[in-house]
Every structure is written in C-alpha cells, then in structure tokens.
C-alpha cells in the first residue's frame, strides 16, 4: 500500500501498521501541533503536556499492529488522549474529573466576569487572541475539551461525542455553552 500527501489519516495509519515508518512521519506532522495544544490547554502545564503527548503517541505506536479503521483517525487519536488525560486527572486527584462526570450546563449567568472595556477600541489582534485564550482557560474542563476538540481536532459534534465517550447531546451541550461563553466574553470587543 502506498501513500502520498493527499492520503487520508486512516490510509497513513494503515501504511504504518504495514511497516511504513514514513507514513507515520506524515501522520505525526499532521497532528502533532493540535494534539499538543489540546493537552497543554487541558492540563495547563507544559511539562505534563509533553509527558502526556509522548504517552499518547507511544500508545499509538505500540497499538499499530492491531489498528483497524473503525472510526476517523482523529477520533481515535483524541480518544486515546482523552483517556490518558482522565488517567492523569485521577492520578493527581484533579477536580476536573468531577467536571467531566457531571453535566456542567450551568446557567450562563456564571460566565466569567465581565472584563473592562479596553481603553483603545482598536485593540490589536494579538491582544484579542490573548483575551480569547484566557477565556478558554477559564472554561470548565469538559466544555474546554469540547471546544479544543473542535478547534484543534477539526471534529464534529458526533466525533467529539465519540472521542469523549458521551452522548451526542452532551457533547453538543458542552460545545454550545463553551461557544456561548467565549462569544459573550469577546462580545464587548466585537
């Protein structure tokens, strides 16, 4: 089986399963940034993120011989990452576990507190980006995860549900609240 730059993730993984290390290189370069940022924003520690990042890829490498296309590769990859993250939370008694277990559809009144309107209306894009990242960091873990899976993994609601092991409605609710909070937080700068 051969592959090229246009090959799908699943084809690349199948090639790697069949012994083509070059296919893994291409696959890794496609997803390294998104997966790393997903882990970094979820655990908020670069060192831990690197450790988890390496664990996820090593799990993938070790499981290559048994790989079969049962879902989109990104769903598979981020599900591995999600599980590894949950393990990390449990190991370190992270409060996020409760956040993942509960339905966190709190009222939108509990949104992050309103920021002061910046003095300069022509705030540059960099400061807007910084503001957005701050808002993302303040999101509940489950909502933030849904948002990051959409942004970094390019996943749909159904794929987010598969990757995080929840129903489609739960995933949709988390994503909806996350987007609403971010829009509300950034709205004053629109």
């Amino acid at each position: 089986m051969s592959w090229d730059a246009d090959s799908s993730d699943e084809e690349l993984m199948l090639c790697y399963r069949d012994g083509d290390a070059g296919a893994f290189d291409a696959l890794y370069r496609r997803h390294r940034g998104g997966l790393y940022r997903y882990l970094l924003r979820q655990c908020r520690d670069a060192g831990v993120a690197e450790e988890l990042f390496q664990d996820v890829w090593m799990n993938l490498i070790r499981a290559r011989s048994g790989y079969a296309v049962t879902a989109k590769f990104t769903t598979y990859l981020y599900r591995v990452a999600h599980n590894r993250l949950i393990d990390h939370y449990r190991k370190h008694a992270h409060a996020a576990v409760a956040s993942f277990d509960d339905e966190d559809c709190e009222e939108l009144e509990s949104l992050p507190e309103q920021r002061e309107r910046p003095p300069d209306a022509a705030l540059d894009a960099k400061r807007q980006a910084e503001r957005l990242l701050a808002l993302v960091a303040e999101l509940p873990d489950a909502q933030r995860e849904a948002f990051l899976l959409q942004q970094e993994g390019g996943m749909s609601v159904e794929e987010i549900a598969q990757a995080t092991g929840v129903t489609r409605e739960t995933a949709k609710s988390r994503l909806r609240y996350a987007m609403a909070k971010l829009r509300q937080g950034m709205g004053e700068w629109r």
Binding site: R32, G33, Y36, R37, L40, E50, F53, A125, K126, Q128, A129, E130, L132, L133, V136, Q151, E152, M186
Partner: peptide
C-alpha cells in the same frame, strides 16, 4: 482568533 492565538508546538 483562536488560530491566531495558538501557535504552541511540541
């Protein structure tokens, strides 16, 4: 905005 803000790489 998010893509502009997030450029971290391993």
């Amino acid at each position: 905005l998010y893509r502009a803000a997030s450029g971290e790489e391993p």
